[in-house]
């Protein structure tokens, strides 16, 4: 992600896709500057989230295809490969302390979805 994170502190917002491209209560993957980012339309909570698309466990580009849900109050996504689950808020793996993914802020305006990169 080097190019995306070049020294700037302020968030740069990238246009990702139309809101309807992301299934209700599910995820979809977008390509932004060569990086794969998973976007989740967590309609049940009225929230949007974005994370790495890659599951760090076996380096598979699959998180956008995972099921989302909650553990207690924590929103999470489960990788379809081996069901590692990650917090959508912090990116921390919830069932294996050794893994962590990146999370990104999401903005939805006029039916368009934007991903924020610091």
């Amino acid at each position: 992600m080097e190019t995306l994170f070049a020294e700037k502190e302020e968030i740069i917002w990238y246009l990702a896709c139309r809101a309807e491209d992301v299934p209700v209560d599910g995820g979809a993957c977008v390509l932004i500057n060569g990086h794969q980012i998973a976007i989740y339309n967590f309609a049940r909570r009225g929230e949007w989230y974005a994370t790495d698309n890659e599951c760090p466990h076996r380096q598979q580009m699959a998180l956008s295809r995972g099921m989302i849900g909650s553990q207690g109050d924590e929103p999470k996504v489960a990788c379809p490969f081996h069901k590692k689950t990650f917090s959508l808020q912090t990116g921390q793996c919830l069932n294996d302390d050794g893994y962590q993914i990146m999370t990104f802020p999401v903005k939805v305006t006029n039916g368009m979805v934007y991903i924020g990169v610091e």
Binding site: P23, V24, M67, P80, F81
Partner: peptide, 21 residues
């Protein structure tokens, strides 16, 4: 009817996910 996203990945894409995606 919103049932796609409650399916396990294989059912969601009506195919079996394999190594590499």
């Amino acid at each position: 009817k919103g049932r796609a996203t409650i399916q396990d990945s294989n059912d969601r894409f009506l195919a079996n996910i394999q190594k590499g995606g």
